[in-house]
Design a protein around this nucleic acid. Structure first.
Lengths: 160, 160
DNA sequence: GCGAGATCCATACCAAAGGATGAGATCCGG
DNA sequence: CCGGATCTCATCCTTTGGTATGGATCTCGC
């Protein structure tokens, strides 16, 4: 039940190629028919109809391909940016990525599932400050959300 | 937008009806465009191109629906899973917490740091549906945020 | 067939998160 | 002493997340 997920793996390129080839073939056939049988003598409607049928068939075929592939797919989540690239350390910054002590505290709280407000209360600072820290944190971790931040922090060992 | 999802489940009769309606709609649109913008001034190739795209989309739509029919039975289990995983991953609300297969997919995506919108795109469903699933998920996991959901899900072993 | 569960979707609404900018206070090494 | 880093906070604004409600299909088991 996850077509795009499957596509990201291996079937994507192949599918695109096949689709492109099929498309090219169809166009070729159309042009051939057009000049071969002087399609101009026929009404445009007929021509359109042929095209419609052909491309509908193509669409069904492609759709079949897509769904056929995902039938054997493990419901597992395909590794995305966080699991592959993003988790790789930028080849610098040994352990800490320039994360300050306070930021680390915020990060830890964040990793425990606390909201910004809860973190603020726990650290006796204002919500604005927590936001400030977390925002800087996201920049240093190169992520865009707290969930990603927690994942990456754990991945790079900043957080247990 | 989410064509495949839209048709995921519907009977054969419904499929035929929908197809007919879609076809009629397309024809209507084509004729409308034809007379409205004097399509004749454009090259036939352009016209054909539009038709091709539209009907290819239609085909994919229908194809997806047809293929999705028999896919509903089993969400496709992976070839080899560890016994432990196999016991807690089975689709359907097995031992876990009454978490359904679809909810589990959302949960997994969530655990990889994806936003609701990204999850929606990946699963070919709307944002509203993702929100619906995640909301139910939070209830079953007894949490109030996605970060907590991921933590608890991992703690309970629902996800690795 | 009918009810229960699952999936899907929409809309409205409120809360939270995140981004951008600016700024005052403190501390510390050069 | 000065500049930089850190910590703090505020304000405005946009996006995202989460809840609630309700409705539509479709599947499956009784």
């Amino acid at each position: 039940m996850n077509a795009s997920a499957e596509l990201r793996r291996s079937g994507f390129r192949a599918t695109v190629v096949l689709y492109g080839l099929a498309l090219a073939a169809l166009v070729f056939i159309l042009k051939y028919v057009e000049y071969r049988f002087l399609i101009r003598d026929l009404s445009v409607e007929v021509y359109i109809g042929v095209v419609a049928v052909l491309f509908t068939a193509l669409g069904i075929w492609v759709g079949s391909k897509l769904l056929a592939e995902k039938k054997n797919v493990v419901p597992a989540e395909p590794p995305h940016l966080l699991d592959e690239e993003a988790l790789r350390l930028p080849a610098g910054q040994a352990g800490s990525l320039g994360i300050s002590a306070r930021e680390l505290e915020v990060l830890r709280s964040m990793a425990n599932g606390h909201s910004n407000q809860e973190i603020a209360d726990k650290l006796f600072i204002s919500l604005a400050t927590v936001k400030s820290h977390s925002s800087n944190l996201f920049g240093k971790l190169e992520v865009r959300s707290r969930t990603q931040a927690v994942l990456k922090a754990k991945a790079v060992g900043v957080i247990p």
